[in-house]
């Protein structure tokens, strides 16, 4: 239970189309992450699935049943909001119980479920507190607990970690991954943070301007982006894009037909005897790696990430090479061109 299918989904606000022809299938038990820049439509898409919004066109299926016109409450989904959306005047217990009381569930069953979830998420000591008395991480747990306690068909999570500080985000990310493994439930997770997407997802859906650009497993997305946008969006720091002429020193075996742009990730550039001649303009020593910003003779900018400490100063010249298998080729329309076999 928990398979979600979207067919030809469109969403328009007046003349403004925010979702265009969305077709997607999320498998049972899968953790699917919607990722994309701000305003790409990922949260809007989640709202169409949740039932909080109605699509202008297209259908939403849950477990094969068309739920497009079914109310949010009757879709059997639970949502974790970016702001947590905990009722501030209720205690944690009341927050957890609220949805169950709406279902007219017997009190003993409500108590049992709250006890189970509180134990699972380690929020038992917080049960009598109000959200205002909790830290960000604790509120996050309660928000997740409120979703779990309903035993939903699938979980929808709308940027649930974006309000947490960096350190807490890392630990909550690990907890969410563990929770997914434990519950085995279908989860759709919206984020603009590609590291969250890469670390959590079974599959990632990359969106841009309301359209799906690519759906793939995290490493497939990293290794074989279908276009320049996905290539640039996935991976940090972003991929370098060079003209064929600039990239010539890396292209020992030539290029496939129709290639206009060559992409190389900063992490795939290494110091070499022959290759790109880079003049360093800025060096960021991060301890585990050194990030070198620089320019080529043509003036094109390039970024290289080299593992460990590297003694380079602005103004120094370096020669960088790359494994040809790790180069990405794009045509004039920014679409991927497969390398010569």
């Amino acid at each position: 239970m928990g398979q979600i299918r979207l067919e030809g989904l469109y969403k328009r606000f007046g003349v403004h189309e925010v979702l265009t022809d969305i077709n997607l299938e999320v498998d049972e038990g899968e953790l699917c992450v919607f990722v994309g820049p701000s305003g790409c439509g990922k949260s809007t898409l989640l709202r169409q699935i949740s039932g909080l919004d109605q699509p202008s066109e297209g259908k939403v299926f849950i477990d094969g049943k068309d739920v497009t016109r079914v109310s949010a409450a009757d879709r059997g989904l639970a949502m974790v909001f970016q702001s947590y959306a905990l009722y501030p005047h209720m205690t944690v217990r009341q927050n957890l119980a609220f949805g169950l009381q709406n279902m007219k569930m017997p009190r003993a069953e409500i108590d049992r479920r709250i006890a189970d979830v509180s134990r699972m998420l380690e929020i038992e000591p917080l049960i009598a507190r109000r959200p205002g008395q909790l830290s960000g991480g604790q509120r996050q747990r309660v928000a997740i607990g409120r979703a779990i306690v309903r035993d939903p068909t699938a979980f929808l999570l709308d940027e649930p970690l974006s309000n947490l500080d960096a350190e807490l985000r890392v630990s909550m990310r690990a907890e969410l991954a563990a929770l997914h493994a434990r519950l085995g439930a279908t989860m759709i997770y919206v984020t603009h943070d590609q590291i969250e997407a890469m670390t959590l997802a079974d599959r990632i859906v990359v969106l841009r301007l309301g359209r799906i650009e690519q759906v793939a497993a995290p490493l497939d997305l990293f290794d074989r982006p279908v276009n320049r946008f996905v290539a640039g969006f996935i991976g940090a720091p972003s991929m370098n894009f060079l003209s064929v002429a600039d990239a010539a020193p890396l292209l020992g075996g030539g290029t496939p037909d129709g290639v206009a742009i060559v992409g190389v990730r900063p992490q795939h550039l290494v110091r070499a005897e022959k290759g790109l001649e880079l003049c360093a303009t800025l060096v960021e020593a991060l301890g585990t790696e050194t990030v070198i910003h620089g320019t080529l003779a043509s003036g094109a900018r390039l970024l290289a990430t080299v593992a460990g400490h590297l003694k380079v100063a602005p103004g120094d010249r370096l020669t960088l090479g790359a494994n040809p298998e790790q180069l990405h080729f794009f045509n004039a329309n920014d679409q991927r061109v497969d390398a010569i076999a």
């Binding site: 909080l52 949010a72 409450a73 909001f81 959306a85 009722y87 609220f98 709406n102 279902m103 309903r150």
Partner: peptide
């Protein structure tokens, strides 16, 4: 968001008014 959370929880309008 609170109203949307209540909507996801299937809360009736009267209960939304009196409880939220």
């Amino acid at each position: 968001d609170l109203y949307e959370a209540a909507e996801m929880d299937g809360t009736r309008p009267a209960r939304v008014f009196f409880r939220i």
